[in-house]
């Protein structure tokens, strides 16, 4: 539990769209299952007064917070308006925004994340699946049926690849403390380092799986930060230079961030790198 627990109260911005409504339902079903509060209010400008799966919708974050107590927002607002929504949440004193939205212009993300930091608000994402602490709290869109509670923290830049790894862990009898998808964009709020800092403070987490991708150097920076036992996997070993592999961040440019040199740097720092996702459980077991 590094981003909240059963007692966390959540609002959803972009509540009335397909994605927003669908995931309010899933988040609240999970909250019911584990005995948590879940989503207490939704926000969509111009749609105040409606209900989505029995959750009341307000025109603004401010109006929602006048009626409900909440610390966290999950964002399903379209890319063109998502930067603004992050700033709205931060301005109104929320502690955490989980931005699921993809295709946010980079300049908007930069500005919004920079502003949120000034307001003391943490941002997970954008372009991420959110976070799940099995048995406690789901913020975002991760499927819950693949995971079981346990002691391994999972941090990843990908969505479905995370599910793949969590599935492998669960099948091998290794439970998870918190799973965090930090997002695949070039500019993201919570980085590997930020999440690892939280894992270090978390008494439940005994080891960490870090799933990275080509592009940038956030994985190396993160992995060398922690004293926790750590297994990494880097996707994109076969990615050709200058081709963007889906995630805007996953691009090998100017000889920087290619998987081979990333893996070399990680191994040089004494960090275990798995060749393929299915090797991760065995490598973890050897460590624990």
């Amino acid at each position: 539990m590094i981003y909240g627990d059963k007692s966390t109260k959540v609002i959803v911005q972009g509540a009335t769209g397909n994605q927003g409504a669908f995931h309010i339902d899933l988040m609240n079903r999970y909250a019911e299952e584990v005995g948590g509060f879940g989503v207490v209010a939704g926000v969509t400008p111009g749609k105040g007064g409606q209900e989505v799966h029995s959750v009341p919708v307000y025109n603004s974050v401010r109006e929602a917070l006048l009626e409900h107590d909440a610390s966290t927002s999950v964002l399903f607002v379209p890319g063109s308006a998502a930067g603004d929504s992050v700033m709205e949440a931060a301005y109104n004193g929320l502690e955490l925004v989980v931005a699921i939205t993809e295709h946010i212009p980079v300049h908007d993300a930069m500005k919004a994340i920079s502003y949120a930091r000034l307001e003391g608000c943490s941002v997970i994402g954008p372009n991420c699946p959110g976070t799940l602490s099995p048995g406690e709290l789901k913020l975002g869109i991760m499927p819950v049926n693949l995971s079981v509670p346990g002691n391994v923290g999972v941090i990843s830049r990908s969505g479905t690849l995370t599910y793949e790894v969590v599935n492998e862990l669960t099948r091998a009898g290794i439970g998870q403390s918190t799973i965090v998808g930090i997002g695949g964009d070039p500019i993201i709020g919570q980085t590997f380092v930020d999440v690892l800092e939280r894992f270090e403070q978390d008494s439940q987490t005994k080891a960490v799986v870090l799933i990275g991708e080509v592009g940038g150097n956030l994985e190396e920076e993160g992995a060398s930060y922690t004293d926790l036992p750590i297994v990494t996997y880097i996707a994109g070993v076969s990615a050709p230079p200058e081709k963007r592999m889906g995630h805007a961040g996953a691009i090998v440019a100017g000889g920087e961030g290619d998987a081979a040199s990333k893996i070399r740097r990680l191994e040089a720092a004494g960090i275990t790198v798995a060749d393929k996702p299915s090797d991760i459980p065995r490598l973890l077991e050897e460590m624990l």
């Binding site: 990843s156 690849l161 080509v214 996707a235 070993v237 076969s238 592999m245 995630h247 996953a250």
Partner: peptide, 17 residues
């Protein structure tokens, strides 16, 4: 064909593996 950039990239890597 995959869903999610990471999973699809990882599938490519496995092919090359």
């Amino acid at each position: 064909i995959g869903n999610g950039a990471g999973l699809t990239m990882s599938t490519l890597d496995l092919i090359s593996h």
